[in-house]
Amino acid sequence: MLEVRNGGFETTVQDYPGRIGMLSLGFAPAGPMDDYAFRFANVLVGNLPGTAGLEITAGGLVIAFQDERAIAVCGADMGARLNGQPLELWRSYLVRAGDLLEFDYLQGPGFRTYLAVSGGIDVPPVLGSRATYLPGAIGGFEGRKLQAGDRLPLGEPMTDPAQAAGRRVPASLIPSYSGYNEVWEVEATRGPQADPDYMTAEDMAFFFSHHWKLDAASNRTGYRLDIHKWQWARESGGAGGGHPSNILDNGYPVGAVNVCGDQPIILCIDGPTLGGFICNAVVAKAAMWKLGQMVPGWSYIRFKEVTLEEAITLLKQQDETIHESNLERS
């Protein structure tokens, strides 16, 4: 059992890859925004890949443990302290009954951090997953973010917590996060409605070179970027509507860049599954984690075009990287 003393700003139970196979009913997958950090946290404590952990956004979480577990915190630095002692990120620790884990607020670049506990958070799966899907108010703990007084059940650990503790992700595999006012390079392929049918080649050249500012109103649903006057390859959206960004509604890829009128919005893992605006690019699955560490209102994005083949290669490399064999004993 995990006892929540302070839920922080926005802390949710998540699992990877989330609620898969439900897009056609309108359920986005949910899951961790930064799946790289989340998956490594699970690897560090000896959990299976699908095990649920916590996504801590912008800090403030305080929890108490009631039994012996291996834990790991991966992601943004929130000045985590275990019983008052600073906790190193990307490393597994042993905790015991009565231990207190506190997160302060963000101490540097990055926006989210992940807590894995050996055995995982054992909330009941809803429609096949324990991931919290906030827009649909389902999954996780009562379909909502955590608050003080919540008591989260834990599963049986797969491995001896003492064995899983004391391991670390090597420094070479810990990503560095772009800071405030800095640019994140995000790999993306052209999307289904790019040039030449919907946008001009100049529109796409601008798209792949501009430094897009991430709006403060961005969240797990969508990442809003700057308004831009596109040239457009069409006069209007035809049967889809008056504006050239309109199409007859179709399914949206997770991670698509959805251009709504003049505004591009990256559809994140809680985003809409279907709609009537064009998608001119799709973020490579292996680059989705970067979205999780951008700071709304502060980060910039430059989309780096990759081919489908390159995107697949990145994904395979990522799978090989996030693996127990890459851990070090500390």
Partner: peptide, 10 residues
Amino acid sequence: YRNAGDSFLL
């Protein structure tokens, strides 16, 4: 058939 990233096909 339109490219829709590494996980989707439209």
